[in-house]
Design a binder for these strands. Structure first.
Lengths: 149, 149
DNA sequence: TAGTTGTTATAGTGCTACTAGAACAATTGG
DNA sequence: CCAATTGTTCTAGTAGCACTATAACAACTA
């Protein structure tokens, strides 16, 4: 998996790395067991410090996305195996919270509910890599997202 | 309008203030022309420094939500009047971007597209203060949101 | 004129992001 | 076993942001 960062971005480097790994997990480009570049090699590739990459990986480890073992490296974890119902409920609450914030700001800007929902449907389709109308299975829909952006 | 802050929160104080004003604008609790507490008085009420409130108001001014004039105070702006089509398009792009991020993270956590969309519909309804089934007008739906949370 | 308001300037504290160098411990492969 | 690689931990420094603190200045109101 190719990881790229934007040094001029406001977003911290370690969060950019995190986002891209999460993105890879979401699209299926990264499967459980896949090896990720080592802390040192990725740091060299990106031209950043070792500790910055280490922090990104540590966050991903705390979130259950990867497993780190010294001497062996970093690999994608089987997140489904370590998912407690409480954790899922927390994720759901956080998502609901974030969606509410977006909807409120959209309304404050004069946007309509319909516009918000049509964008939500559009972006959900992009994230899941399907046409907005279809109803695919939930599991594994590898990469292939020829969306704009 | 009553503004409250949580000093123990991770979110910066000035952004907490901003969010609550935006929330007020969204629900209609704050109408164009309404006066907001002065920088100094709100700072005293909240127990924070004047500059913290000033920064919050400055952000709101830059976003077009309020107008500040020295000697007179701060009032809610008529945002619709100062909304260029380009600005609206930018807002839309940002929202789409944020929604895509949320959808991708949701998928990375193993969540389904259907779950994401049902939450989006639910929270949009909460933000617009209507039952999820109805199709109300876009404009003015004052406060009244007896949702959980 | 006096009081209130936003505006600006300087300065200090604490925290986070990032960099830097170094050493240590577990694991792997020759 | 030995050397290389990997994650882990430590100390330390720079830069920027959030917040506080004083103070002065400028525009508006009563």
């Amino acid at each position: 998996m190719i990881i790229q960062i934007d040094l001029s971005s406001d977003e911290p480097i370690y969060l950019q790395i995190r986002s891209q790994v999460v993105h890879g997990v979401a699209t299926g480009e990264l499967q459980a067991g896949d090896a990720l570049p080592s802390v040192r090699s990725l740091a060299t590739d990106l031209g950043v410090n070792m500790h910055t990459v280490n922090k990104a990986y540590a966050v991903l480890r705390d979130e259950g996305y990867v497993a780190m073992r010294r001497g062996r490296g970093v690999m994608v974890a089987d997140r489904a195996a370590s998912l407690t119902p409480e954790a899922h409920s927390l994720d759901r609450d956080r998502l609901a919270d974030d969606l509410l914030k977006l909807a409120l700001e959209h309304r404050a800007r004069g946007g309509s509910r319909e516009e918000f929902l049509s964008l939500a449907i559009e972006q959900a389709a992009a994230a899941y890599g399907v046409a907005p109308g279809t109803t695919p299975g939930t599991t594994s829909n590898p990469a292939s997202n020829p969306t704009k952006r």
